[in-house]
């Protein structure tokens, strides 16, 4: 017991401390946004999700006025699902891994407005899944009979391909990209990197031309402007700009092949 009390001593000192959150809210998809401020008692180890849960339990702003609880999305709480992406202190990231101890006060929280806002911090990332469909980010293996085992994947290739497979469609790279906006139809860095992943797979490679064709459609790889914010922002550390340059190379080759080969 003595051990516990000595350990909890510093926590007791900080327990009186409050943390402040300034949250950009929006009631409906087409209604204007506004900010609300909340002050919560500090707890050691708290993250942005636990702070939002605290607000949900007691939806009162810092003036003591009762308000509607803030809406957000989250699932895994361990930075692998991509659902809780939001703009925290100006940078898009996952709320679950945003530790309040490491954030500057007051903490500004806003939805990733590159996507349609559903309500408060909830956004609609459908366009990303649409982009994955567009570039055929899957491996067709269905046949009318058992096709048997596919070719083996070299271990070295598997290692870097595994890094690309960590993409959780969280949308952070699209939010950070200056070329993903309402003036372009650029599908964003995530889907470009997925083409590299599926084209690297020995079975997926059999359909690589289809995916390259998709990248050469309007809104495809031409939309990249080399700002390279994506690679700096990706929470999974995916080498997005290497993927994009690699796909630039493959589409270049594909283009000349199509011109000279027929």
């Amino acid at each position: 017991m003595a051990e516990v009390s000595t350990q909890s001593h510093p926590a007791n000192v900080t327990a009186k401390k409050n943390v402040k959150f300034i949250i950009t809210r929006q009631d409906k998809p087409d209604s204007p946004s506004y900010t609300e401020e909340f002050e919560l008692p500090y707890r050691p180890g708290m993250n942005v999700i636990s702070a939002l849960m605290e607000i949900q339990r007691n939806p009162v702003d810092n003036t003591g006025k009762a308000t509607a609880p803030v809406c957000w999305e989250s699932n895994c709480l361990e930075e692998v699902c991509g659902a809780c992406s939001m703009v925290i202190n100006g940078k898009p990231r996952q709320a679950c891994s945003a530790l309040v101890d490491k954030l500057e006060q007051p903490v500004h929280i806003a939805p990733m407005k590159t996507f349609p806002v559903v309500r408060d911090l909830v956004i609609d990332r459908s366009r990303m899944f649409g982009a994955l469909k567009k570039v055929k980010a899957w491996i067709p293996i269905d046949g009318t009979y058992d096709l048997g085992a596919g070719p083996r994947m070299p271990e070295k290739k598997r290692q870097w391909a595994y890094e690309l497979s960590k993409c959780m469609t969280c949308g952070v790279c699209l939010e950070a990209c200056p070329n993903v906006n309402d003036r372009t139809d650029f599908i964003g860095p995530a889907a470009l990197s997925q083409v590299r992943l599926f084209n690297a797979h020995p079975t997926g490679e059999m359909n690589k031309e289809d995916r390259l064709d998709a990248l050469m459609e309007p809104g495809g790889i031409e939309g990249c402007g080399n700002s390279q914010n994506c690679v700096r922002s990706c929470p999974k550390g995916i080498p997005l700009t290497t993927s994009i340059a690699e796909m630039n190379k493959d589409t270049s080759k594909h283009m000349f092949k199509r011109w000279l080969g027929v």
Binding site: G90, K91, A176, P178, N179, N181, R183, T184, G225, N226, S227, Q228, N229, R232, S233
Partner: peptide, 13 residues
């Protein structure tokens, strides 16, 4: 078509 965002992403590139 560009929407520069250097205030939030002040990277050299």
């Amino acid at each position: 078509q560009a929407k520069p965002n250097n205030a939030n992403y002040g990277y050299e590139r």
